[in-house]
């Protein structure tokens, strides 16, 4: 019921309440993600010993296994939800999403190259850098191919081109892989997961994700103006070259950083903005924080779900989001099919 009221008013109070609800849900999901896992584990005791600096098994599990997984889930989901909302608002197209238009795929390729070439062993910092550089290249390529005033069809086609290029390059790397084990390892990594990540992963992923998210948030007012088209937005005082640079750079940093440690986790940026848009009265600027929080909630929840599912081996998170997200994409295309030009 409260959701219906929110949808109807879209007022400042309603928006604050929405963000409050989302933040609380996120907190719950984060704590659950810390508490749920394999094997017997006393969450309270582990938290206590971790905080008091003890070195027992509980603290070790907490700090080395649970905490990185939960933190990455939160930040990666936050970045994906935000990136999706920004791209959809900028391109005024509900199908825009880093995964669909190939940016995640390119970032994965960048990270795979670093893996495969052995550069990752030189410095783990190179991993996100590879992801970011490739994501940036994909973003620039996409804009170059699709052009400024890309309509839905052009954009999706350009995205398919970028995506297939990234996929082909990843296949090339797999093909050239010297032994099947390395190839399998890369394959599994590509599926996307937060399992077995350490605080080192957190340390290398967080700076680009945070920087990217800041850049993306800076576009919010211009995104509102863009609801009226590029000329009107410019006449309202926005330099869209800056907005575009913030968008491409922000998405590359946030998604590139995220993909470099987690592999590709698709559809979060597609599903979350779409679901939350009615609750912010369709205003792009208001959607950004909501979608970021929602992305974090969805990603953490899905990551909890894969640990609760009785499958062996554990399902990869990216597989789960794709299995849920792809039908969602079908339904979106179904509804938009009349509008595609």
């Amino acid at each position: 019921m409260s959701e219906i009221a929110l949808q109807a008013t879209g007022s400042a109070a309603g928006y604050r309440r929405l963000l409050g609800i989302l933040s609380l849900t996120l907190l719950v999901a984060f704590v659950l993600s810390l508490a749920i896992g394999y094997g017997p584990f006393d969450f309270g005791a582990a938290l206590h010993s971790a905080l008091s600096g003890k070195d027992d098994l509980g603290a070790l599990v907490f700090i080395e296994i649970r905490l990185p997984r939960a933190i990455l889930g939160l930040f990666v989901g936050f970045a994906l939800g935000l990136a999706g909302a920004v791209m959809q608002a900028f391109l005024r197209n509900p199908l825009a999403e880093p995964g669909i238009i190939g940016i995640s795929g390119a970032a994965a390729f960048g990270a795979v190259v670093i893996f495969y070439s052995g550069l990752a062993a030189v410095s783990s910092l190179l991993l996100p850098i590879g992801g970011i550089v490739a994501a940036l290249a994909a973003g620039l390529l996409l804009f170059a191919v699709a052009g400024r005033n890309a309509n839905t069809a052009t954009l999706i086609l350009a995205g398919i081109a970028v995506n297939s290029l990234a996929g082909a390059l990843v296949s090339l790397v797999l093909n050239l892989s010297p032994n099947p084990f390395a190839a399998t390892e890369i394959m599994f990594w590509l599926m996307g997961s937060f399992a077995d990540r350490s605080l080192t992963h957190v340390a290398i992923a967080l700076p680009p994700i945070v920087a990217g998210c800041i850049a993306l948030f800076l576009t919010s007012r211009a995104l509102d103006a863009l609801a009226l088209g590029e000329d009107t937005a410019t006449s309202l005082g926005f330099d869209l070259r800056i907005t575009r640079a913030l968008l491409v750079g922000g998405v590359a940093l946030a998604v590139g950083g995220a993909v470099a440690v987690s592999g590709t986790i698709g559809f979060v940026g597609l599903v979350v903005p779409h679901l939350l848009r009615p609750f912010v009265a369709y205003r792009p600027s208001l959607l950004l924080p909501a979608s970021a929080l929602g992305g974090a909630i969805l990603t953490l929840s899905a990551d909890i779900a894969v640990r609760l599912l009785p499958t062996q081996p554990e399902l990869k998170l990216g597989v789960v989001t794709a299995v849920i997200g792809a039908p969602f994409l079908f339904s979106l295309v179904w509804r938009m099919r009349g509008d595609l030009r």
Binding site: D224, L228, G229, L236, Y282, R283
Partner: peptide, 16 residues
């Protein structure tokens, strides 16, 4: 107008 905004919100964009 690319999103189903309310009339008032569209007019409010003039204040950006």
């Amino acid at each position: 107008v690319d999103w189903p905004l309310s009339v008032e919100k569209v007019v409010a964009l003039g204040r950006l």
